[in-house]
Design a protein around this nucleic acid. Sequence first.
DNA 1: CTTGAAAAATGGAGGGT
DNA 2: ACCCTCCATTTTTCAAG
Lengths: 153, 153
Amino acid sequence: MEGPDETDLQLLRLLGADSNLTIKELAGRVNLSPSPVFERVKRLEANGYIKKYIALINAEKLNYGLIVFCNIRLKQHDKSIGHQFVTDILHLAEVVECYNISGDYDFLLKVYAKDMKHYQDFVFNKLGSVKSIGSTHSTFVMCENKNSYNINI
Amino acid sequence: MEGPDETDLQLLRLLGADSNLTIKELAGRVNLSPSPVFERVKRLEANGYIKKYIALINAEKLNYGLIVFCNIRLKQHDKSIGHQFVTDILHLAEVVECYNISGDYDFLLKVYAKDMKHYQDFVFNKLGSVKSIGSTHSTFVMCENKNSYNINI
DNA sequence: CTTGAAAAATGGAGGGT
DNA sequence: ACCCTCCATTTTTCAAG
């Protein structure tokens, strides 16, 4: 497929902010009739420009009001240890994101917890039982100023 | 509203992973008929448990293959400086997330860039013109192992 | 890209447990 | 309070031009 044109980018912007817009509404925004917009959206989906559609759940409403970025250093750095760490970590419900990073630490986790007590339990009992972890460093979020979830194209 | 029951949580889980599921499909998953499911979903939306519905855009496909966590320390820490910083930063297209954090730095940004050259330009020309910034420290993502976007309830 | 029509989903009325 | 079965309306989806 050739790259998306300006109309495609506009559709991605619109759907990236609100995927409940109907084909008809999208058509109005980009000054086209519904059919070509329908075809464009389907093509963007088929070609992987749109990964999926999700609902954003309000974690605070479910009493998950604490966000923590947890830096992790492994004991050793061979491939199998790293791979084992990732599989261990992905099963933990509190871990929303996991990145392999440059710098002093090896991984960065974004963790959602109910409160400090819950986070303490997470570090001691859940991370504590992952053998490959050497040390951790937690950075607590005091305020989420922005989260747009998508790049602003 | 009273807290969501187990059926509501199941609906949140399902929609948090795929919001294209129809009411009928959801009904099948939770063993109910479409009508009560429709009402439950509308209530979860009205009461803020579902914030919004979005399409997840594939940033790599749009040549935004570099993710960087950028730690920022302000020059001073009074309220107006912090507020000005946030408004300045939210206008930058590359900044997807912004958190006010504990620890050595004041803010953590998640930044999407096309490549290292683009990121360098972002730091020098865009962050460089935000007067309230004292110093920065960049952590580069080598691999995104997980991003579920929602808490696993 | 447009028109137009079939298929499917939404959203709501009315009744039952 | 919660659920069900129908049905009108809207939206999606896919032809053919």
